[in-house]
Amino acid sequence: MQVITSPCWHARLADPSNVREAKPRITGRTMVIDKGLGLHAFEDLMQTAGAYIDVLKLGFGTSALYSSEILRKKAELARAHHICLIPGGTFLEVAVQQGVVPSFFDTVAAAGFTGVEVSDGTIALSRQLRNELIDRALDHGLHVFTEFGKKLTGSSIDYSELIHTIYEDRHRGAELITMEGRESGMGVGIYNDSGGCKEEEFERMLLHIPNMDWILWEAPLKSQQLFLIQAIGTKVNLGNIPPQEVMSLEALRRGLRSDTFELLHQTCDYMI
């Protein structure tokens, strides 16, 4: 295991948890949502926090709103920092609804994206069509991240569908299955209308997940990130993280914030 170290701080200060791995990570991955960062802000994000970002999503259908030049530069910067750049899953749903799926994938590959999100948060996808979308993405050499759950406020979780989707998506080649939480983190999936976690539903959900390393939890709010780290561990995969919160989340993962200090610090005698 190659851990992330700092050239200037003692290892016990840089990572008191002593568990954070360097990229490419299989667990403890962080997916960031970009809802319209300018190039300067995007480059600043890469320089400051690029080492702590594994996947970066251009939220919903914003990919269609960039000029080709800006899209290309974002893709180049992401690739230089070993970050998988993906368009939002809603954009692929638009392509399905508009009947332009082949054009979507051709453009995704040409623009420099290195992955896609296959979701049905807004439209209904048959299992066959979901499989075809995953296969088409893989044929284009793209990483595939699928999503489970609807964006509609108050949507309930079908547990038999959950476990079937996880197994099927993994079998088809999906790297991670994302649990829907929207960019707001409120009123959907395991979150109530104020963003709190519905603990009974969450516990029941855990009983139906065969391997936690296969799952990415959308958790845009700090309270949600903290809850999931405490419940699952620092190697939990977290998504829809706002760009300005990447460093804060990394500090949570390492025990560099009071919230996870006792949870993650190794026991040792105080000394000077």
Results as ranks from 00 to 15, higher is better:
180 E>K: 09
197 C>Q: 13
153 T>L: 13
62 T>H: 09
8 C>H: 06
114 T>V: 03
271 M>I: 09
261 F>K: 11
135 D>V: 04
99 G>H: 03
174 A>T: 13
156 S>C: 05
109 A>V: 01
62 T>Y: 15
51 A>S: 10
214 W>P: 08
74 K>H: 03
60 F>N: 06
129 L>V: 05
147 E>Y: 05
56 L>S: 01
19 V>E: 12
260 T>L: 09
142 L>T: 04
82 H>P: 04
87 P>V: 00
96 V>I: 03
218 E>R: 15
60 F>S: 11
69 E>P: 01
174 A>R: 09
80 A>P: 14
181 G>I: 09
175 E>Q: 13
178 T>L: 15
95 A>T: 00
261 F>M: 11
77 L>W: 04
31 M>C: 12
232 I>A: 07
237 N>P: 14
31 M>Q: 14
167 Y>A: 09
246 V>L: 08
56 L>N: 12
252 L>W: 05
182 R>Y: 10
242 P>S: 09
216 L>S: 13
20 R>Q: 12
149 G>P: 08
133 L>I: 01
183 E>I: 11
85 L>A: 07
193 D>V: 12
89 G>D: 10
47 Q>S: 11
43 E>K: 12
105 F>T: 00
17 S>T: 10
187 G>R: 12
200 E>D: 13
209 I>K: 08
254 R>H: 06
67 S>W: 14
55 V>E: 02
49 A>N: 06
144 V>Q: 05
47 Q>P: 06
234 T>Q: 15
187 G>L: 02
245 E>F: 12
148 F>Y: 13
176 L>E: 02
178 T>N: 11
198 K>Y: 12
100 V>E: 00
82 H>T: 09
264 L>A: 02
249 L>C: 08
121 G>T: 04
113 F>E: 00
256 L>I: 13
265 H>R: 15
221 L>C: 11
157 I>C: 11
206 L>I: 13
265 H>T: 09
240 N>E: 10
159 Y>W: 15
246 V>W: 12
58 L>N: 05
63 S>A: 11
18 N>A: 07
70 I>C: 04
7 P>K: 07
116 V>Q: 00
108 V>S: 01
164 H>L: 13
230 Q>D: 06
35 K>E: 13
91 F>V: 00
259 D>W: 04
241 I>T: 07
120 D>I: 05
201 E>C: 07
29 R>G: 06
72 R>V: 10
109 A>K: 00
156 S>A: 15
100 V>T: 05
